[in-house]
């Protein structure tokens, strides 16, 4: 029952050490999300994306200004151990493919892949050929469309069209029946909103996690405010004032 002791040589090469720890055999550069490294052997340097010598790499592979501050580049030679909140960790190989994943659950990816922001807030899309590492609360469960998934249980999707929002009829009726659309009316079953997947592809699910999404949503909204003119900004200000008044009651 005693745990095996690993050293630099005996640690697995680009494989799981256990279901919760992944070992990257680094020989060059990887993008890694901050705070996910737990230990390493060897000569490895961590640089922020703004470091001058990384300009070409970032220009070629990293296209998410929203999340740029959450990421670093690990470069050098060695064994790098990655983990995240004790979640299950898995590696995925993409071959000329695309996969979209919850931003907070992506731990690291090879520069062969391109990172872009998904249209769905809080998600990132990887395109190209290469390997990436992602965490999930419990093992990943793969399902095929058609399926409707609770937003907190959605880990990502591959090859299928982006999902749309699905609202239960009772919820829609509530919105129509009252002046509540503005007031952020809440449903009663707790299950009135899902992501609806159709078409060919694979949906990745996890046990629902308490998603610390406020920050992401805020960043997404702030990013979109740039598109508004003065008239739009005034209308938004009016809307926010009304919502604030309701929240204070």
């Amino acid at each position: 029952m005693t745990t095996p002791t690993y050293n630099r040589v005996s640690l697995p090469s680009n494989d799981n050490v256990n279901p919760y720890v992944f070992c990257v055999d680094l020989n060059g550069q990887w993008f890694a999300q901050k705070g996910k490294m737990i230990a390493y052997y060897g000569q490895i340097r961590f640089e922020s994306l703004s470091a001058g010598p990384l300009d070409a790499l970032v220009a070629a592979n990293f296209h998410s200004p929203l999340y740029a501050r959450d990421w670093i580049v690990a470069q050098g030679q060695g064994k790098l151990l990655l983990a995240d909140r004790g979640f299950d960790v898995n590696s995925y190989d993409l071959t000329d493919g695309n996969l979209t994943i919850r931003a907070g659950n992506l731990l690291a990816f090879e520069p062969g892949l391109d990172l872009k922001q998904s249209i769905i807030p809080g998600f990132l899309t990887l395109i190209g050929t290469g390997r990436f590492i992602a965490a999930s609360n419990g093992p990943v469960h793969f399902v095929e469309p058609p399926v409707r998934v609770d937003p907190q249980a959605l880990l990502g999707w591959a090859d299928c069209p982006s999902p749309c929002h699905h609202y239960d009829h009772s919820y829609v009726r509530g919105v129509l029946g009252t002046a509540g659309s503005l007031l952020g009316i809440r449903g009663t079953s707790g299950e009135e909103h899902q992501f609806d997947f159709t078409g060919e592809g694979t949906v990745l699910m996890q046990s629902s996690e308490v998603v610390r999404d406020t920050e992401t949503v805020l960043r997404d909204l702030e990013g979109q405010i740039g598109m508004l003119g003065a008239g739009g900004l005034q209308r938004l200000q009016h809307f926010i004032a009304q919502r604030l008044a309701v929240e204070r009651d």
């Binding site: 002791t5 690993y6 256990n18 720890v21 230990a39 151990l81």
Partner: peptide, 12 residues
């Protein structure tokens, strides 16, 4: 989560 035991030897 399960602990991982990592060996340290001189020079590494």
């Amino acid at each position: 989560g399960p602990a991982v035991a990592l060996e340290v030897v001189p020079g590494e």
